[in-house]
């Protein structure tokens, strides 16, 4: 028993030292170069990978982003040279900013990557509340996007778009975080479709959806996999529209936004699961990452897990396409800056 305790304490101590190591040095400004490499020529690329990779997830465990990142991590390990561990690390807080900034300020040596949320992370940038610039992030690729669905509470007095437009009081929408992608999707849809909406903030998507089931809020907008069990083969919520080019095979009677006359919303109401690394990461390391990512996206086991999770095959993008997607999203949302600021009190 004593021996067990010793082993436990010793291993805890090791854990402690290992865990502390990256946190110990004070953040180095991006321009300065660490002392040791200056001896050699400046443009040399540090070797990669030389240690475990940290995969930062800037949200708490359990949601869609956490799930996708955790599914992906072992496949990144599988295809990286020397197969280092890819360790998911939840750094929730400050509406994604804490986690993103932890990655943003890390050494640009390829050993820190993060999962990003488009358009959610764009919002911080256009309202000047975030310290990061998404255009500077070194993009590795997009895991997938997802299809949004709006669902009405069966207890709501609203049944059609005309009901919503004619209402004297705003419809109540359950959201999680006023700068989240789903809140953004709600605000833009209401604006384009011409109805008034009041956002009710919940702690998690499950709470917001339950509020709609109960009738405390009138509607919610969420990715299809999140809402599926409440709208397919269930009468908990009534699906209202689908943000996709074609109707979903699981919801053949539910119109697309295009059919409702708002095809323009398709380009803004979407959700992308992006992966990127530290600005200024040397090109050879990025090349390794991008090849690794592309191989992982084609791995049959990975594809099967993602398909089970999303109920459809994932739609990945390579690094170049992903960077373009980020640029587009920033441009599109810049137009909506003042609208968003009405809903997000300073």
């Amino acid at each position: 028993m004593k021996r067990n305790v010793c082993v436990l304490i010793a291993s805890s101590l090791m854990l402690w030292i290992v865990a502390c190591a990256p946190a110990a040095p004070t953040p180095v400004p991006a321009t300065s170069v660490p002392a040791a490499p200056t001896a050699t020529a400046a443009p040399t690329t540090p070797p990669f990978p030389t240690k475990d990779v940290t995969f930062i997830i800037p949200v708490s465990p359990g949601g869609g982003f956490d799930t996708n990142a955790r599914i992906l991590a072992p496949y990144l390990k599988k295809y990286l040279p020397t197969q280092p561990n890819v360790v998911p690390k939840n750094v929730p807080g400050g509406e994604w900013r804490l986690g993103i900034m932890e990655m943003y300020k890390a050494q640009p040596d390829g050993h820190t990557i993060a999962i990003f949320n488009l358009p959610g992370n764009v919002l911080g940038q256009i309202t000047n509340t975030a310290e990061y610039d998404l255009n500077k992030v070194a993009w590795i690729g997009r895991i997938t996007d997802t299809v949004y669905v709006t669902a009405l509470s069966p207890k709501s007095k609203f049944r059609t778009l005309d009901d919503l437009r004619a209402a004297a009081t705003p419809a109540k929408a359950g959201v999680v975080g006023l700068t989240s992608s789903s809140a953004l999707a709600m605000i833009l849809s209401a604006e384009e479709m011409g109805f008034k909406v009041k956002l009710i903030n919940y702690d998690g998507s499950a709470d917001a959806i339950l509020a709609a089931v109960r009738g405390d809020v009138d509607l919610v907008i969420y990715p299809f996999p999140t809402l599926q069990k409440f709208i397919v083969g269930s009468k908990d919520l009534t699906p209202f529209n689908v943000y996709a080019k074609e109707r979903l095979k699981e919801l053949p009677d539910v119109p697309t936004v295009g059919e409702q006359g708002y095809a323009s919303l398709l380009s803004v109401v979407a959700l992308d699961y992006m992966v990127g690394t530290v600005p200024g990461t040397p090109e050879p390391i990025l090349k390794i990452w991008r090849e690794t990512f592309d191989k992982a996206m084609k791995d049959p086991d990975f594809l099967k897990m993602m398909t089970d999770q999303l109920k459809r095959p994932p739609s990945p993008l390579n690094a170049e396409q992903a960077a373009l997607k980020v640029k587009d999203t920033l441009n599109v949302y810049a137009k909506y800056k003042s609208l968003v600021e009405q809903y997000v009190p300073k």
Binding site: P92, G94, L98, N201, P345
Partner: peptide, 20 residues
């Protein structure tokens, strides 16, 4: 952070750490 209104921070003294 104010749990409902969002971006109102109380007793955080400008620290991102205390926002949560």
């Amino acid at each position: 952070q104010d749990p409902i209104e969002g971006l109102n921070y109380r007793f955080t003294f400008g620290s991102i750490y205390l926002e949560d």
